[in-house]
């Protein structure tokens, strides 16, 4: 199912060590940039549960991401940071509830209609925050203090410290990846992939396809909300743009770029896309044009995503086992 994790855990371990050491050697700016990239990677990894494993191409995951951020805003005060023990569970619960509602309605449609309906719901949330006074309307709202991770008066982790924040983001990314990996290997994950492979057969075997998809959709959305919560904390600001379809589409590009047939592929997609932007932005005026051309070239060269490149670099035995999850490269692009 996942070559990187199963066949060769050494490269992953090496990457993890690099990620652990990075904040010690890198300047603060890059530590912050890496934190931001890891939070986007969480959205990409979780979106891939719906897109890659479930065949559910969602264009409203930014709305869940943004909603997680707004929930931090609503639970923070102007004088002190919110207590993470209360504010994070509330944020995740609200995101999960909204995702359950949107999912229950969207999952009555299939294929391109599902994409359209999720897009519409995402835009509804965008305009909900953009056109009302809630959350400061189109101006957004400031979050003056980061959430506090404390026991009584004792601060366990100070998120105001960029390096501490980095490690929290890293822990979230590792946790989210392990969770998704556990899910796709479980009977639930196999049933989800079966429904993607042949819905009619999955139903006639007795799988409650609708509920399986809804569960995957809600889990995926909740993890996106988690990333949004910490992103809002990092920027100290939340605005309707964080809910818009543009961000949803960007994350989808990360997933496709990284590779949908593995759990970790989207992480590389997220880091590559954000890294590319960062480098190009500094060097060229029309960086978006070059960025676009490079992405097109990458997708053509590596139809299985960047994780395909990883399996080329890592020799023998790194090829993923052919099973339900590892579709042939041509099919690794969503049929829209």
């Amino acid at each position: 199912m996942n070559a990187l994790f199963q066949k060769s855990s050494k490269p992953i371990l090496a990457l993890l060590i690099v990620a652990m050491v990075l904040p010690i050697i890198a300047p603060t700016y890059y530590v912050q940039f890496a934190s931001k990239a890891m939070l986007m990677a969480i959205v990409a990894v979780s979106l891939n549960l719906a897109v890659g494993y479930g065949g559910l191409v969602s264009l409203c995951h930014a709305a869940f991401f943004g909603l997680g951020g707004y929930m931090l805003g609503f639970t923070s005060s102007d004088s002190a940071g919110a207590s993470i023990w209360l504010s994070l569970p509330v944020a995740l619960f609200v995101v999960a509830a909204v995702a359950a509602l949107i999912g229950a309605l969207s999952l009555r449609t299939r294929g391109i209609y599902f994409i359209m309906v999720t897009l519409a719901f995402g835009e509804m949330l965008f305009y909900f925050f953009h056109d009302t006074k809630i959350g400061g309307g189109s101006d957004g709202m400031y979050i003056y203090f980061k959430p506090e991770i404390a026991l009584g008066d004792l601060t366990l982790i100070d998120l105001e410290d960029a390096r501490a924040f980095y490690y929290v983001a890293l822990a979230c990314l590792v946790g989210a990846s392990l969770l998704i990996r556990m899910l796709v290997k479980s009977p639930f994950g196999h049933a989800l992939a079966a429904a993607k492979g042949n819905e009619r057969r999955a139903l006639s075997l007795g799988f409650p396809v609708f509920w399986i998809r809804l569960a995957a959709f809600v889990i995926s959305a909740t993890l996106a909300g988690l990333a949004g919560y910490f992103s809002a904390a990092q920027f100290g600001f939340i605005a309707p743009q964080m809910l818009g379809w543009h961000l949803s589409a960007t994350v989808l590009v990360m997933v496709v770029l990284g590779g949908m047939s593995s759990v970790l592929g989207p992480i590389f997609g997220a880091i590559a896309l954000l890294g590319l932007e960062e480098v190009l932005k500094a060097s060229f005026e029309h960086w978006k044009l070059i960025n676009g051309l490079l992405i097109i070239a990458l997708v053509f060269a590596l139809p299985g995503g960047l994780q395909q490149m990883a399996s080329l670099l890592i020799p023998k035995g790194a090829a993923p086992e052919p099973d339900l999850q590892s579709m042939p490269p041509k099919e690794a692009v969503p049929h829209v």
Binding site: L183, H190, A191, P322, M327
Partner: peptide
């Protein structure tokens, strides 16, 4: 009407899973 991209065993295993004790268990391979 089968799962064309999966192995014979995975196809039949899914059928057996649907009628097993915990068809939608989320943990454990």
């Amino acid at each position: 009407t089968i799962f064309a991209d999966a192995t014979v065993f995975e196809n039949v295993r899914l059928a057996a899973q649907a009628h097993g004790g915990q068809p939608l268990r989320m943990f454990g391979g």
